[in-house]
Design a binder for these strands. Sequence first.
DNA 1: AAAGTAATTAGAAAATCTTCTAAATAGGTT
DNA 2: AACCTATTTAGAAGATTTTCTAATTACTTT
Lengths: 90, 90
Amino acid sequence: MRMSFAETFKALSDPVRREILVLLKGAPLSAGEIGSHFDMTGATISYHLSILKKADLVWETKVKNYVYYELNTSVVEEIMLWLSDLKGDK
Amino acid sequence: MRMSFAETFKALSDPVRREILVLLKGAPLSAGEIGSHFDMTGATISYHLSILKKADLVWETKVKNYVYYELNTSVVEEIMLWLSDLKGDK
DNA sequence: AAAGTAATTAGAAAATCTTCTAAATAGGTT
DNA sequence: AACCTATTTAGAAGATTTTCTAATTACTTT
């Protein structure tokens, strides 16, 4: 079930997590592939992925012993709508 | 001078600060008027306002011994553009 | 100038977040 | 089954954030 707005904004507030989302813009990547872009342990990447997942910003698919993550653009859209309303667009 | 994207996202990550922005949607309000909407001390509200100000999400105008805060929608627009790009809109 | 009102700053406590190491889980391969 | 590879979980350390109380600044009014 969809998590709160609050948690989505929190998920977006960390630079590592935003960079992960940008990486996923092109195509789904495994946790390991994502991790290789950062100078951090896999455990830390896993922690960030879990927050993105709880915020529904990404989906995961398990294939063999890999876990692939994919961007969920519909939640991005929700945040944009909130911002759009704030801006005063009718 | 305009603060980093990172700081703008951080500023948006707190529910109190988002509620302040919504309050300012209608019209500018003084720090005291903003504070009266929350069950928090004026010092705490002042802290949140300083973060919104540093993120350039609000402007302040001093009138008598009041400080009025006003929403700055152009920064909201910047965040929307980032999200729009993430979504994949060309 | 003294007193009052609005708001901010300083400093500290409590809560939350980020990161690590080490251990555990899960699946694939020999 | 034993071993290897990918990923997650647990637990702890360190950093950052949020909030408060008390003190300070700034401007107004008497």
